[in-house]
Design a protein around this nucleic acid. Structure first.
Length: 323
DNA sequence: TAAATTTGACCGTT
DNA sequence: AACGGTCAAATTTA
């Protein structure tokens, strides 16, 4: 705890109060931003399938905007976390547990050097763990609609949890050594329309995959990565947007790191300005169309006739290779 | 039949 | 020893 050097005890006391206020404020900010992420993710799941049905480039523009919104808030969360961490260190006190985005400290493991581990059997090398800070937690009723392709590789029953935790890795892990992973765990029962089943999704690592570089199905993969699973008009502008925005979409909610580097920031800014330009081209008629589509989506969010599969627990899962 | 998922075993950390 | 993350063989699915 940081104390004022003042000899006045009341002054010192007020400094302490001020620090606590700062902490509670940042904690409240983190909570609100996490809530914002959850709401935007839900909104995306509502809107995008309808826009996909309408077809065309607009769906892609909207998808990119959703990605950038989520990207912005995820980065803000990361900055707040760093700020809180810095304060904790400056206070020379044990780190406070994160208020909203909670990293599982069990995940803190050594980083294998590679050569040094050759002496060990392969079986032991597999236990590479992610850095605790390199994660983003999201609470959402739509844990699988995040714009990336994942492959389930495990499921575990977790102590004191009513539902198992599922483990997913990036579908491009083998092809491109993308090490992004995520876990999905239901924490709230489905209570009907007012209280849908809620899931905690924890994303680890950043997507290093470049789907455009995949020889087998490059075009389809570009759509998936850049639109969150939507089909696209496929014209030149959209493709260019996908490429220029690859950084932005790749570091969207699905893979935002606590460490926000300048390169990613710059890429997001550039893609954002381009998106704004494209959005500005929309006519009023098109905007009205959006309103109608949104109205439809708002009343039938999960009955949309899209290519969704259900996993063992009834979660909506995009069919692999089909979006 | 290829690809995706499931599931039990293994293994590192606490 | 318990726990949880990952692997990989077995099974299921399209």
């Amino acid at each position: 705890m940081r104390h004022s050097k003042s000899s006045n005890s009341s002054s010192s006391s007020s400094t302490l109060v001020c620090d606590n206020d700062d902490r509670s404020s940042s904690a409240a900010a983190l909570r609100e931003m996490a809530r914002e992420q959850s709401l935007v993710t839900q909104l995306r799941a509502l809107v995008l399938p309808s826009l996909q049905l309408a077809g065309g480039e607009r769906a892609e523009v909207v998808a990119q905007m959703f990605n950038c919104i989520l990207d912005c808030s995820a980065k803000a969360i990361a900055e707040l976390k760093l700020l809180r961490l810095d304060r904790s260190r400056a206070d020379d006190a044990p780190s406070l547990p994160p208020v909203v985005v909670v990293d599982d400290k069990r995940r803190v493991r050594k980083i294998f050097s590679g050569d040094g581990d050759n002496a060990k059997p392969n079986r032991q090398q597999r236990k590479r763990r992610r850095l605790a800070d390199d994660s983003v937690t999201l609470e959402t009723p739509v844990p699988h609609y995040d714009g990336h392709q994942w492959r389930k590789y495990g499921q575990k029953l977790i102590n004191n949890a009513a539902h198992p935790r599922s483990y997913y890795k990036c579908a491009y892990k083998q092809e491109q050594d993308c090490r992004a992973t995520k876990t999905v765990q239901q924490y709230q029962e489905d209570g009907g329309n007012d209280a849908p089943a809620m899931y905690t999704v924890v994303y680890y690592g950043q997507h290093t995959c470049n789907p455009a570089g995949n020889d087998t199905d490059a075009a389809a993969v570009v759509k998936t990565e850049s639109t969150g699973g939507l089909s696209s008009g496929g014209d030149a502008d959209a493709d260019e947007l996908s490429r220029s925005d690859s950084q932005c979409s790749n570091i969207s909610v699905t893979c935002t790191s606590v460490v926000v580097d300048h390169h990613q920031r710059t890429a997001s800014i550039e893609s954002n300005s381009k998106l704004l330009d494209m959005a500005a081209d929309l006519t009023n008629a098109e905007v009205n169309t959006y309103d109608q589509l949104y109205d439809v989506a708002a009343f039938s969010p999960f009955d949309l006739d899209t290519d969704w599969a259900m996993d063992a627990h009834g979660h909506g899962l995009p069919k692999y290779g089909d979006w």
